[in-house]
Design a protein around this nucleic acid. Sequence first.
DNA 1: TCCAACCTTACGGATCCCTGACGGACCGTC
DNA 2: GACGGTCCGTCAGGGATCCGTAAGGTTGGA
Lengths: 219, 219
Amino acid sequence: MRLLVVEDEVNLAGAVVDHLRARTHAVDWAATLDEAAAAVRTADFDLVLLDLSLPDGDGLSLLREMRDRTDRTPVVIATARDRIMERIAGLEAGADDYILKPYDLDELSARIAAIRRRAGDMPTSERRFGALVVDPEGRAVHLDGQPVALTRKEWAVLDRLSRRPDTTVTREQLEQAVYGFDDEVESNAIEVHVSRLRAKLGRAAVETVRGFGYRMGRG
Amino acid sequence: MRLLVVEDEVNLAGAVVDHLRARTHAVDWAATLDEAAAAVRTADFDLVLLDLSLPDGDGLSLLREMRDRTDRTPVVIATARDRIMERIAGLEAGADDYILKPYDLDELSARIAAIRRRAGDMPTSERRFGALVVDPEGRAVHLDGQPVALTRKEWAVLDRLSRRPDTTVTREQLEQAVYGFDDEVESNAIEVHVSRLRAKLGRAAVETVRGFGYRMGRG
DNA sequence: TCCAACCTTACGGATCCCTGACGGACCGTC
DNA sequence: GACGGTCCGTCAGGGATCCGTAAGGTTGGA
């Protein structure tokens, strides 16, 4: 799960990013419209939290541009309580929800969870691979009915891999899912996490596609 | 997937080429406008990464020349942060995206992936040949519903062959798709890969056109 | 029948990947 | 602030796989 936080006020942004990082996998931060536009075009985010008043322009233009590109990434806009018109315009431009500033961080998390559920990201949300069941909603993994404890990074890898069964996920896609842009990894960290995953879930859980990446197969 | 990197600074070019080679199939490098122009006219690239300031001229002229020839190959231009006018001119001349120098290699990869996706190179991207299904997006191959594991080169060959059903692909085109210009192959490597492909996908998957090359047929 | 083109197999060097070990970073507890 | 625990990135050795080459067999056309 990968989020983009678009917010120019540094302290607020820092708090939000920290909070979300503790709860999800990778969070990127954009302080300007330019940065946000570049980020959105570059990576696949699962959700964008968009502050509307930015130093270099109106966040709505970004939202409109995304929707024009038929980019359906869920967007939550953050507006001040007295900006009712902005809020309406935002929803009309294709936002999935709004949240009033100043907002409570827990409310934000809940709102995000709701959006993602509504977006039907994964209809049944349970992903089955033989005896292995991955439940992104509850961030739980069961093997033969027994719960398996995963660390944060292990979960991030498994989450990304299990999202598209039978599809090869490149090492790069995994790195982007586990780390953001900034956090650079210079070693075989992904390999190591896959190795640790296999130790917990069984050798066959993750198939390696030499030269490209990894894949999880149905059955 | 075949890329052309146009960049005169040797160290940077080397790093970029290495990075991209690890992730895609074939990468060619041109250090001058002349070389780039020749390469672009000679081979079908899937994408061109174009540095604008070259020793023997402006990269934009190459881009314009390509577009004049109605060559729609996706082009990403690389410019320094302070060359805003260049960037705008580039987009107006028909570039598909730009990236600011100095750029992060992973960001470059992501940008390239985004472009290719946006270019609708592969709408739903599934290529069907009877019981054989080739999915370039997920780099997956299914035969009678069963996934088939392919090595990198095998995939490169199959990818090129399946791109145009019922069309004969010359041995030379295959070599260019699998290797670049430089990587020379002096033997029957392509034949060997085709043979290995047939062993995995069935004898009839790939038809040989004696004296010309190979072909994959619908139905 | 003969030749050229193509197919198949085997082999060893090159490449890529796996995994155990280690130490730094962070966290909670005493 | 010291200690124990967990998580995680890095590294290196060894092992598995890949792939170009070559050599011999097979096919197809003249």
